[in-house]
Design a protein around this nucleic acid. Sequence first.
DNA 1: TCAGAGTGCGCC
DNA 2: AAACGGCGCACGCTGA
Length: 625
Amino acid sequence: MSDTGDGWCYRPFKPVLQPFPLMPASQTHPHLKDGTYQLITSGKELESALRWCSPSGGKSLEQSPIFGLDCETTGLDPHIHTIRLIQLAVPDQPVMLIDLPQIAPCDRHPLQQLLSSPVLKITHNGKFDWQFLAQAGLQPAPPFFDTQLAYRVLTAGLKTILSLQTLAQKLLNIELDKTQQVSDWSKPLTSKQLQYAALDAAILLKLYPILIKKLERSHLLKIAQLEFHCMPAVAQMELNGMLLDLSRWKSLGAKLESDRDAALQQLSQLRIAGNAQMSLLPEMTDTINPNSPQQVLAALQVLGMPVNSTNQKELVPLAKQYPVIRALLDYRHLSKITATFADSLPKHIHPVTARIHPTYYQLGARSGRFSCRNPPLQTIPRDAAARTCFVAAPGYQIVQADYSQIELRIVARLSGDAQMQRAYRKGEDLHRLTAALVTGNAIDAVSEEDRRLAKAINFGLIYGMGAAKLQSYAEMKYGVTLSLEEAKAFRKRFFEAYTGVAEWHETIKRSYIRGTKESRTLAGRRRRWADKPRLAELLNHPVQGLNADITKLALVKLNKVLTETGAKLICTVHDEILLECPVVEAKHISYLLRRCMVAAARKFLRPIPVVVDIKVSSSWGGDEA
DNA sequence: TCAGAGTGCGCC
DNA sequence: AAACGGCGCACGCTGA
């Protein structure tokens, strides 16, 4: 699909706003007049139901503008469980309940045709239905309208429950009884189950016009459509999963565990508090649990160390002076990695696919970013030792692409800062430039340490970090020691050098003072606050949110161009996209990936140039040694 | 005993 | 006046 020229380059659907008449009265549900259904249990019934109007008569279902789509399944895992019932709710018709297991695969063609037609499909958490339908060979095609995503787009930032039940109650004032949801869908279906299933799909048709109006009134229809178009990509990404080299991972885990134990050994030998030893054995008396912040803090204070907390921020500056603190930090790090990653990842290897399939929530973060869990692939340690364990299947390669300094480029775009814009247009290194500007050195004379300092300054100060925090942030993340006075001075010079950024901050500060309770990205995404936002949140959302908008647009573009290839989307981490593709296609896929990502970002960043770094290798962390 | 808030830290 | 944001998970601890 080519660029429509209106700022988006996927096909928008036309909202269908004409009201549809209520269906025949149902005796079984007092609140709804349209709970009637038609149970379809054979190929013959399916065929006649899907063209209930003769060709000479009225329109066929495919010409119907919309239908509500829902599935009941035998469980939650699309690699293991299967569809029991497909519900299609069409305006003016009884809900069609298709008992899929009873329809022979060769008789499913009319259904396949319907689902792959460009009719608007209304779903609630359609990612779930998409995955089960795809696994059944019935992959539904866009356009989609997802009531859950729509409601999240409308309420982003607020604590809101997103169940269909809640939406029905809030938007339609209908109480849905969900007790049947967890009933046994593998046995012959009861009329209660059928009634429940029909109602779920019928409700979607009712929610749709209400949500459309709300989205339009809030100028959020485009963002919602971006999310809807993104949904199939996310659904497919979850199905694809990632391949973990288990033996490699286990030997890494073993090494980390022995390193951890060595750090603990060192810690106990240092005898940090009288008789008390650091020990992992809680049944021993007189021991300190090194995993207990409380106990560790007490022990450090007994030793007379000037700490009020045991977090990294406090400890890192002391590590050079006290070997015991160094050992504690080493232990903490290794303990964290082994507990959170080494031990847990193998548990997530899927029994059927032998791959890892996390759950991605495309609106999991208030900013519009993805969140990811079970396992959180977005937080895998970035060192090569860990990431080389995520490998391509035999005959495949991993194509990894990430935006270079996307958040800083967004700041340059949003603030219009002349200095930043010029630097980016000339292809300069912005961290080097910042280093030169705050230290007063020539740009060619910037040392590596200065550049690390500048990174801390750039990433910290754009979101309004104060001098004290900059000081500890530079120390902790970049190993650069600053006095508070230096931190203050650098902060001052940063805003003197980047006056556009200072003005941009001022603009946001004014809306903050006026008491604004919402923020918009350049693409129109909105974040709301129930109470007064913090200034830093208002500074952050336009940047982090636009990053999310851009990455999602890239995914949408990508999904379109990958269909004819052997490439699979396997992971996304905020400004990064991972594909797995046959070795012979790697070069072509790299080209497509870069093109999609650059096009998506350019849409919003122009005139700031966009840079996408791409690596092709046998693993996420590059080619193994 | 167990849910839940709190601390701390992995990532971007 | 001063203020960096967004996540998920493991852990120890608290309190009903």
